[in-house]
Amino acid sequence: MKTLILYYSSHHGNTKKLVDAIVAQGNVTAVDISAATVTDCSDYDMIGFASGIYYQKFHESILKWAEANLPQNKKVFFLYTCGVKRKNYADAIKQIAESKKSKIQGCYGCLGFDTFGPFKLVGGIAKGHPNDEDISSAVNFFCGIKDKA
């Protein structure tokens, strides 16, 4: 199954750690959305969107790309890292995918080191994340949805 992951990972590279581990599984292409020139992804069987969480949702560049370029009826999945795990932060990206009649395969989120705003004053939160267990769980998540798709 040919898979594309579009990701945005800045600050501490938390999300990129998950993406890199999944790419190592093979037959997965990862594209940093901040440098993306990809607009046609029709050749891919499954498309993943990965981001840190910004104001309780995926980064705006991911949302805008999905709105403009996600083809109808694609299999999609979501990955995210966040400083505080309160809820599933994928609601906005899911709404876009649903509007494109995408087949949502699943969502994986884990903690990621965060020094945004007031967290910087205390040296950050979720130190040491994503850790090996978080990364392994992300790979297991991907392998599980890939096998079902």
Rank of each mutant, 00 (worst) to 15 (best):
G83L: 09
T29P: 01
G144D: 09
A30N: 04
H12I: 00
E67W: 00
T115I: 14
V19I: 07
S9Y: 01
Q25I: 10
D32N: 15
K127Q: 14
A21P: 05
N69A: 08
A126P: 04
G109C: 10
I33P: 05
F78E: 06
L18P: 01
K74V: 03
K16R: 13
D132V: 03
N27S: 14
K57H: 13
A30P: 04
T39W: 02
E133K: 14
K87W: 03
G26Q: 06
E60S: 13
Q95N: 14
L63S: 08
G83M: 10
L63T: 04
K101M: 11
I135K: 09
V139E: 03
F119N: 15
I93V: 15
D45I: 01
D40K: 10
V19C: 10
D91Y: 09
F49P: 05
G106Q: 01
K127F: 02
K103I: 13
A126N: 04
T15N: 11
I145N: 05
I62C: 11
N73L: 06
G124A: 08
H11L: 12
D32A: 12
I47K: 03
F142C: 05
C41S: 15
G144P: 04
C143G: 12
G52Y: 13
P130Q: 02
K103A: 11
H129E: 04
T3A: 13
K57D: 13
P118C: 09
S99L: 04
L4C: 09
S9Q: 03
F119E: 11
K64L: 12
K127C: 09
V76W: 05
K148A: 14
V31M: 05
Y80T: 02
G128E: 06
K127T: 11
S42W: 00
V38I: 15
E60V: 11
N73C: 11
D40F: 08
A126C: 10
I96L: 10
C41R: 05
A68H: 10
K120I: 00
Q72Y: 13
Y55A: 14
G13W: 01
Y89H: 12
L6S: 07
D32C: 07
S102L: 01
Q105S: 14
I22N: 10
Q72C: 10
G124V: 07
A30W: 00
Y7I: 06
G52S: 13
A138P: 04
K57S: 14
D114C: 12
I104Y: 05
I53Y: 06
A50C: 12
N131E: 09
A30K: 12
K2Q: 14
S42K: 14
Y7M: 07
N140D: 15
Y89P: 07
C82F: 00
K94H: 07
N140K: 15
I5F: 07
K57G: 07
D91N: 13
K64G: 00
K74S: 06
T115H: 00
F49G: 06
L18S: 05
V23H: 06
P130H: 00
G13P: 00
G26H: 04
K74C: 09
D20C: 03
A126E: 02
D91W: 01
A138R: 03
K17S: 11
I145M: 03
Q105R: 12
S137N: 15
E98W: 01
V23S: 07
